[in-house]
């Protein structure tokens, strides 16, 4: 039985092959003249020898400019090397671009063609996909429960995969934001580490000071120090003894966006601007150093923190304690606590 069937199948296959071969042979014969004279896909046009020469010249120019780039690169200690390099490379690209432009405009067919927009949708395929998904779910009887289970599993797994990202930083611990290197007795020093002596501080200018024996690159360290005639100062009453000899010190980090308050509006600013002020160059938050660092203009939302000072027997300025408020840009709840002295210092 099975042998017969196999023989029949083989015969059928042979027949199919024969038909296919016949069709192919006949087809070949009939198509032959077409191969010799195929229908043009691109419209024929007139040659344009002048455009060809132009393209050639532009291509040669591009090659020369590129070679020039290599030459300029090879010379060491050439003055204006960067300029020549840019010029050569830019020129090479420009000439190549021009050559391509001429080709596009004059040497190839640039007739406009029409094309149908693709079908907006394929309703049958859409329907089939929907059906496929629907029927595949037939055997589930507790779909909602399973979906909820799946959602839970994927959600939990996703959370598990995200949790290691918390190693990036102290996510929950915001205490370091309150820390500064200042504490009672810490000396004010300049960039070279030299202490600030009260007698050497002049009015009409401002100084940058740092905490002695602490990193200069932490937000809590840098100060602006300004000296006034004591009669000019109008500090809040509880800060009356924070400014020995009329010297006040504020955090140099702006409470708005964390830039250094690097401008002192006296006497360089025009006389129309009232009074001396500390200005942050980033967004021009302006603070009044005679009134406890209050904001008088610009976007800062709270005063510059003031550092209480005293003068030690050698005449050097020292901190009387920590700042009047947290240093640097604000965050949720920033005013709640006073700054603390960092553990490292």
């Amino acid at each position: 039985m099975s042998g017969d069937r196999e023989e029949g199948a083989q015969l059928n296959a042979l027949k199919r092959w024969a038909i296919a071969a016949g069709v192919l042979l006949l087809g070949r014969k009939r198509r032959r003249p077409l191969v010799a004279e195929p229908e043009r896909l691109v419209e024929a046009g007139q040659p344009d020898p002048r455009a060809e020469w132009l393209v050639l010249a532009l291509l040669l120019g591009a090659a020369c400019a590129a070679a020039g780039f290599i030459a300029v690169y090879s010379f060491n200690h050439l003055e204006h090397q960067t300029q020549y390099l840019g010029l050569a490379l830019g020129l090479a690209f420009a000439l190549l671009g021009a050559a391509l432009g001429v080709i596009g405009k004059r040497l190839v067919d640039d007739e406009e063609h029409e094309e149908e927009y693709p079908l907006p949708r394929h309703p049958e395929a859409e329907e089939e996909i929907a059906q496929l998904v629907q029927e595949s779910g037939d055997r589930f009887t507790r779909k909602r429960l399973l979906l909820a289970g799946g959602g839970t599993a994927v959600g939990a797994l996703g959370a598990a995969l995200v949790v290691p990202a918390l190693s990036l930083g102290p996510f929950l611990d915001t205490d370091p934001f309150y820390e500064t290197p200042w504490r009672r007795g810490r000396r004010l020093v300049d960039e070279a580490g030299k202490p600030f002596l009260l007698d050497e501080i002049e009015t009409e200018t401002f100084y940058t000071a740092y905490a002695d024996r602490a990193s200069k690159e932490e937000l809590g360290s840098p100060l602006v120090v300004v000296r006034f005639e004591p009669s000019q100062l109008h500090l809040p009453s509880q800060r009356r003894d924070w400014a020995p000899g009329g010297v006040v010190a504020y955090s140099k980090i702006c409470t708005h966006a964390g830039c250094a308050v690097a401008l002192y509006r006296k006497p360089t600013f025009p006389p129309v601007e009232p009074g001396p002020a500390l200005v942050c160059p980033c967004h021009y938050s302006t603070f009044d150093p005679t009134r406890g660092g209050n904001v008088i203009f610009g976007p800062a939302g709270r005063p510059l923190p003031q550092l209480p000072l005293y003068v030690d027997p050698s005449g050097a300025l020292r901190a009387r304690g920590n700042f009047s408020g947290p240093v640097g840009p604000s965050w949720w709840g920033v005013r709640m606590r006073k700054p603390s002295t960092g553990p490292s210092t």
Partner: peptide, 25 residues
């Protein structure tokens, strides 16, 4: 092809040319 390709490549070359000229000069 063949109409748009050389134009677009020419645009690429022009962008590159302008950027390298700016970068150098």
């Amino acid at each position: 092809f063949p109409g748009y390709a050389p134009r677009s490549l020419a645009l690429f070359c022009s962008v590159a040319a302008v950027l390298f000229l700016l970068g150098g000069l």
